[in-house]
Design a protein around this nucleic acid. Structure first.
Lengths: 144, 144
DNA sequence: CGAATAAAGGACATTTTTATCCTATTAATA
DNA sequence: TATTAATAGGATAAAAATGTCCTTTATTCG
């Protein structure tokens, strides 16, 4: 469904949000450790998220990554997915046709649109805050 | 969502079904032409489908691929997806955790289960016959 | 200012996916 | 039986995704 990069990106963002709730900045090393991801690869992904203004980075000692409280509400999963995987998942044809729409649909078009609309709605309506709080109270996990 | 191999596999199977409705066997070359896919790669995928008894192959002159009328009803998309992409799409965690279930869910688990259940239902209930007939009457397309 | 710390980013390596090429096998038919 | 047409399958190549390493840049703090 999502690329590895995107999976790491979402997990990282949720972890950063969790820590930012306590006012703590976190380093790439800590993030990679806590979400069980390869450090350097995770660093690249964090760069992308930072460039897309999804997370905030600070260089130097005491630096690291953080997310402002307001951003935790306004940043929805679809923004992270789009920043990393692009919009193929929202736009592309399920059977890989370059052109596939209601005019000239692939055999699966209508059924796919339904699924994708649901997926899209879910991603657009899920905020980092929502996911971070589930983690905070120990209901959910980011590794294993 | 699906791998390229799986996309080609579904398109190829639908095309074979379409032709088999007229009692015509089709060659790899014709299939690749009609679904706009790389020939040799498509041949590999057809081998997989054949080994999984999803389509039937005949060697030699007048040979080619075909699907029996009864199989067009019994073969559902989920069987093709499973034969080519395995069951990651049904089983795997949306955020890539090795272990993710109701006991120890990732932050997206519940929302993901909903989407995936819908996708799974759709694939399990869609037969090759259904897709081939849409093509036959010119409502849908396999290339472009 | 200098040392230390952390992200940014470029270059490279590995792995997986996608794609191609060539030979072997099978079967029809002239 | 020889030829030819078709799939089967092994080996290899190319491209994309994933992952690593090292240098640069920014910042803090002694």
């Amino acid at each position: 469904m999502f690329s590895k990069a995107c999976e790491y990106g979402i997990r990282a963002a949720v972890y950063i949000a969790l820590r930012s709730l306590d006012g703590r900045r976190v380093s790439v090393n800590e993030i990679a450790e806590e979400i069980d991801s390869p450090i350097a690869f995770t660093a690249k992904i964090l760069q992308q998220l930072s460039r897309n203004n999804i997370i905030h980075s600070v260089k130097g000692p005491t630096g690291g990554f953080e997310i402002e409280r307001a951003a935790m509400d306004s940043v929805k999963l679809n923004m992270i997915v789009k920043a990393i995987d692009g919009d193929a998942i929202y736009v592309g044809c399920g059977l890989g046709l370059k052109e596939c729409n209601a005019e000239k649909p692939c055999p699966l078009h209508d059924k796919f649109v339904d699924i994708r609309t649901d997926l899209s709605k879910m991603l657009k309506s899920t905020s980092l805050f929502e996911l971070a709080t589930g983690l905070e109270v120990g209901l959910t996990y980011l590794k294993r």
